[in-house]
Computed example of a mutant assay.
Amino acid sequence: MFAERIGYIVWFSDFKAARGLDKYGSLHYLSRKMNYAVLYMDADGSEETVRHLQRLPFVKKVERSYRGEIKTEYEKNVPDKTRFYGL
């Protein structure tokens, strides 16, 4: 139903020019202080888009975001010790 999306972190040197990154995908966040942008795009054709991004003069580095692959379901193996510390 929905296309697979991949996130990329794009490090840039010019904030004004970085606002134009939205034509390469969904621009999620721009950091003015740390000079990076979070960009989401479709998985098919993302390699070609990354190559185009790396050729831009204001782009320093493009990294893949592994946020979608991090385990977010936690299990509690430690017993609850709150009853021992009660008044």
Rank of each mutant, 00 (worst) to 15 (best):
F2Y: 09
E48C: 00
V59I: 15
Y24D: 05
E63V: 04
D42W: 00
F15Q: 03
V62H: 04
Y29Q: 06
D14Y: 06
L21H: 12
L87F: 03
D44V: 05
G68I: 01
Y8C: 03
L30V: 13
L53G: 08
K23T: 15
L87V: 04
H28R: 15
Q54M: 14
K76H: 04
G25Y: 08
R19F: 05
N77D: 05
H28Q: 12
M41L: 15
N35Y: 13
A17T: 12
S65Y: 03
H28F: 02
R83P: 01
M1H: 10
S31R: 10
S46I: 06
V59N: 02
R83Q: 04
H52S: 14
L53R: 11
E69S: 10
T82A: 01
L87H: 04
R19Q: 14
S31K: 09
E75W: 08
D80Q: 06
Y66W: 04
M41R: 09
V59F: 09
A37D: 06
S13H: 05
K71C: 04
G45R: 07
Y8W: 12
K16G: 10
Q54S: 12
Y74N: 02
L87N: 02
Y74W: 09
Q54F: 00
V38K: 12
G25V: 07
Y85R: 12
Y36V: 03
R19H: 08
K71V: 07
P57A: 11
E4P: 02
E63T: 05
E73Q: 07
T49L: 13
T82H: 00
R19G: 11
H52E: 15
G68P: 01
L27A: 09
E69Q: 13
S65W: 03
G20F: 07
K23V: 15
T49E: 13
E75F: 09
F15E: 07
A43I: 02
V62A: 02
S13Y: 02
R64C: 01
K71E: 13
S46N: 10
M34W: 12
K16N: 13
Q54R: 15
K81G: 00
Y24G: 00
H52N: 15
V78Y: 08
K33D: 14
A37H: 11
A43W: 05
K76F: 02
S13N: 12
S26E: 14
L39N: 03
Y74L: 11
A3P: 05
G7L: 00
E63A: 10
V38T: 09
Y66Q: 03
R19K: 15
